[in-house]
């Protein structure tokens, strides 16, 4: 019985497909490159996964609720320069941390309000704020990178032993967000709203508030991502995070979240982000052209989602 349900899990859940791919790539790299299993390399992989993973947690909630957030890449840039400039201006790095997350939260809240109160489609709303946030970052810095090397930046560059601090943050946030999504009323409402918003509303769920909440969370996590990315480079470039929204959305979809809303798991999203990180690492270690890396990520997304919809169609018959 137990064995059968494991087989069923593997056959029916996209998380499982992606987990299997992750294991295969991991084992393959272990044999293909002597550098792969070194502490230094794994630590680098962990760093690459962290920001995408953290931002993907928020993005996953938005997509499960039936929306999409294209503004996260720009929020990363805006938050990174905010962290640097606020800590420089006040001399207090802790205010830099607060500022980065708060600016992300503000953009996210704005997205939520535009989507629910003015009823602008989420794609359009966040396409707009993508442009606005990036412009604001460039305007505030006049296009110049900002030094960011105080202790707040340590969250991005620091390690405890060999483990990057940002990776520890990813692990902790994954646990928190997974708990939120499965065990709290607000988390379950996210699924209900994404599954059938009209029915959710008539069942007494405050749909608008739920949507504003997920956009605000997504913005806040993107703000944190910007802080970490700026800190990792000890230099906040207003162009940080350019195109990140695509990696983040790819990780979410790869992890089994349905773009149509209502379905997906937080664990899957982190597995998706990890697979993308490992693939990137593989190209570096195996010395293959970086251009192939871009193509492969695209192929993997199509493959994983394609396998899933083939499976689903068989169920529907």
């Amino acid at each position: 019985m137990e064995g059968r349900s494991v087989v069923r899990f593997l056959r029916t859940r996209r998380e499982a497909t992606v987990l299997a791919m992750l294991v295969i790539v991991f084992l393959g790299l272990t044999f293909a490159s002597e550098f792969f299993l070194t502490g230094r390399n794994l630590s680098n992989v962990a760093r690459q996964i962290s920001v995408v993973g953290i931002v993907a947690l928020g993005q996953a909630l938005v997509i499960i609720a039936g929306g999409i957030d294209l503004s996260v890449g720009s929020v990363i840039g805006l938050a990174a320069v905010t962290a640097a400039m606020v800590s420089a201006a006040t001399g207090m790095p802790s205010l830099g941390i607060v500022g980065a997350i708060a600016i992300g939260m503000a953009v996210g809240f704005l997205n939520g309000v535009l989507v629910t109160r003015i009823r602008i489609n989420p794609f359009i709303t966040t396409l707009g704020t993508l442009s606005i946030a990036r412009g604001a970052a460039l305007l505030a810095t006049n296009g110049n990178p900002q030094r960011f090397d105080n202790w707040a930046a340590w969250l991005g560059y620091g390690r405890i032993g060999e483990v990057p601090v940002q990776f520890l943050l990813l692990v902790a946030l994954t646990l928190v967000v997974a708990f939120f999504a499965t065990r709290t009323r607000w988390g379950r409402n996210v699924y209900a709203v994404g599954d059938n918003a009209r029915a959710a509303r008539l069942a007494g769920i405050d749909v608008a508030r739920t949507r504003i909440m997920v956009f605000t969370l997504s913005g806040s996590l993107a703000g944190l991502g910007g802080l970490l990315l700026g800190g990792m480079l000890t230099n906040s470039n207003p162009n940080l995070g350019l195109g990140y929204e695509l990696d983040v959305i790819a990780a979410v979809i790869l992890g089994g979240v349905a773009l149509s809303g209502g379905r997906g798991s937080i664990g899957g999203v982190v597995i998706g982000a990890a697979l993308m990180g490992l693939l990137r690492n593989a190209f570096v270690l195996l010395n293959v052209s970086g251009y192939w890396q871009t193509i492969t990520i695209g192929l993997v997304v199509i493959l994983a989602v394609g396998a899933d919809s083939l499976n689903r169609r068989r169920e529907d018959d």
Binding site: R188, N189, R198, A199, G262
Partner: peptide, 27 residues
């Protein structure tokens, strides 16, 4: 279909969803 069920959620969640809104944060 259009106004009632939350199709992908479990039968159980469909039953408790309205009641839950009056409860605390934890399920």
């Amino acid at each position: 279909k259009t106004n009632g069920i939350l199709p992908n959620l479990s039968v159980e969640e469909n039953i408790v969803v309205a009641r839950r809104q009056a409860g605390g944060g934890l399920v």
